[in-house]
């Protein structure tokens, strides 16, 4: 049953979730220096012993490690990631808001990636071993090799500084599309390249299948053979790449959001590190890991569901 598979997969998540929470929490303990001292140090260098002690108590830093972890874990389960050292705001809310902005950008980037990857991947496979295929494959390799921070600046120079088409950076209240185009394109490039390669090999694989020849033998036009018989089957494995791409997009968000001043989770992490807001770093990293894990979990389920044959294999 699909349900049994679902449950088994969900059970696998539990040890991983516990471990990643532990990893996120311990990060603070590998840090040299006492966060309370760092936070309470005034710009002139001195600090007030009483204020440091008060900070420790306020943030529970005076308790033993395992108690701190358990308290934090209990909170984390119900969405309480503690309070920012800097703004005293709840970490979870800040992270959630930032993540919503990252999500907006990522969805747009994913759409851009798919729009590029599907046609090029298919054409590359259909023109297998020709100059067109070689060019497509080289472009894909190029796409995964280009440093996104560099690409971002090169695009800003071209589209903002020289052509004045798009704003160089800014948030635009998170809704203005003109602010999203450049960062989303930069984010989407790497994913597009990975997806294109995947679609190409998947399409090549399917086009060599006997049922494609059967479909031709029925007198269907090549267009119908490709769209109805090949593309549908070729795109099923691509679902798994979308999971992989989420990782790509989240990774990219760190640099891209910082450069474009987009108030997303990548930007939040970098800012929090620079301001030693360890609580926020910890919370963001855990949040991103959980989201990433869950997305991959659902992607896997969708893959199983979309693929009747696998569904059958795993049932029996």
């Amino acid at each position: 049953m699909l349900k049994d598979y679902f449950i088994r997969r969900a059970l696998y998540l539990i040890p991983v979730l516990i471990f990643i929470s532990f990893m996120s929490f311990s990060l603070i303990y590998i840090a040299p220096g006492d966060p309370a001292e760092i936070m309470m140090t005034s710009p002139s260098g001195g600090y007030d012993e009483a204020a440091v002690e008060a900070f420790r108590i306020a943030h529970g830093l005076d308790q033993p490690f395992y108690i701190q972890y358990l308290n934090w874990f209990k909170g984390a389960v119900v969405g309480n990631f503690g309070y920012s050292y800097m703004s005293e705001q709840p970490v979870f809310e800040t992270v959630l808001n930032a993540f919503k902005n990252t999500l907006t950008l990522s969805v747009l980037a994913l759409v851009i990636a798919l729009v590029i990857a599907i046609p090029f991947g298919v054409v590359s496979a259909l023109k297998h071993n020709t100059v067109v295929d070689d060019a497509c494959r080289f472009c894909a390799l190029f796409g995964v090799s280009i440093p996104n921070f560099w690409q971002a600046y090169m695009m800003i120079i071209l589209f903002s500084v020289i052509l004045h088409w798009l704003p160089p950076s800014g948030f635009g209240h998170g809704t203005e599309i003109s602010y999203m185009i450049l960062p989303a394109t930069v984010l989407g490039t790497g994913s597009a390249a990975v997806m294109m390669r995947m679609i190409r090999s998947s399409m090549l694989d399917v086009m060599g299948k006997e049922y494609i020849q059967t479909a031709r033998g029925k007198g269907l036009s090549e267009k119908i053979v490709i769209i109805r018989h090949a593309l549908k089957n070729a795109l099923v494995p691509v679902i798994t790449v979308i999971g992989l791409s989420i990782g790509f997009l989240l990774n990219g968000s760190v640099v891209v959001e910082t450069i474009f001043g987009w108030s997303g989770i990548g930007n939040l992490v970098v800012d929090s590190i620079l301001s030693h807001d360890y609580m926020m770093v910890q919370g963001s990293v855990l949040f991103v890991a959980v989201i990433f894990l869950l997305i991959n979990f659902f992607v896997d389920l969708v893959y199983v569901w979309a693929n009747p044959e696998i569904r059958y294999d795993r049932n029996s």
Partner: peptide, 12 residues
């Protein structure tokens, strides 16, 4: 693997 690599590297 659950951590997106850039976040893990950055956090460490």
């Amino acid at each position: 693997l659950a951590f997106p690599s850039m976040f893990l590297a950055l956090a460490i």
